[in-house]
């Protein structure tokens, strides 16, 4: 009899400028029976509709949806952050939205999600920081690392804009620096590790 409790419980992804190109590429590489929830914070215009979730849905088999207020996080679902709201996670693993001031000029802010996710999931979280033009996500990734979670960054050399992944590397001992095509593969493997 096997107790196949997974080592990791959740994946959080932060991305900014260039995200519309790279996310479909990465998510299409995620296998159809990916067992964990994936939460994405993308810096996106405040007035955007939920077309972002719809666009991603075309690229992957997993269900993609915008995170709803108080919604319970489910496995094998990809959630995107609603534009113009910060996305946080409560200790009962439901979403919490806020319209508090911008952090790092951004709402949603990657740091806000990363900090709150790290507090809930501790060592059982995988974080990924991709292309982007500011340093949002760096402190959050460092916090995740400090709490025993895993940090993956896109190789800045492959990023549309290298500032965001580079700023993580500058302040945090990251676990993996990968090309876009390696990231999905890595996530597929990490998600299957049992305790």
């Amino acid at each position: 009899m096997s107790f196949n409790k997974k080592k990791y419980e959740i994946v959080v992804i932060g991305v900014s400028a260039g995200g519309m190109q790279i996310l479909p590429e990465i998510l299409s590489g995620i296998k159809d029976n990916f067992p964990l929830p994936v939460i994405i914070v993308n810096h996106i215009a405040p007035s955007s509709d939920n077309y972002f979730a719809m666009l991603l849905q075309e690229k992957c088999k997993l269900k993609v949806k915008e995170a709803d207020e108080k919604e319970l996080i489910e496995n094998s679902v990809i959630y995107t952050s609603p534009p113009n709201y910060h996305l946080l996670i409560e200790s009962d693993k439901t979403f919490c939205l806020s319209v508090d001031q911008r952090i790092n000029y951004a709402r949603p802010s990657i740091d806000v999600l990363f900090y709150s996710a790290s507090d809930v999931y501790k060592s059982r979280i995988i974080s990924v920081v991709l292309t982007g033009a500011n340093s949002d996500g760096a402190k959050g990734a460092r916090y995740i690392k400090k709490n025993g979670g895993l940090v993956i960054v896109q190789d800045p050399a492959t990023a549309y804009i290298e500032v965001m992944p580079q700023s993580v590397i500058d302040i945090c001992e990251v676990d993996f620096i990968l090309n876009p095509n390696q990231i999905a593969e890595k996530l597929n493997k990490l998600a299957e590790i049992n305790i």
């Binding site: 946080l88 996670i89 409560e90 200790s91 919490c96 508090d100 806000v112 709150s116």
Partner: peptide
């Protein structure tokens, strides 16, 4: 209040 927001504040 929603704890995650209060806590962050």
């Amino acid at each position: 209040y929603a704890m995650a927001s209060v806590r962050r504040r």
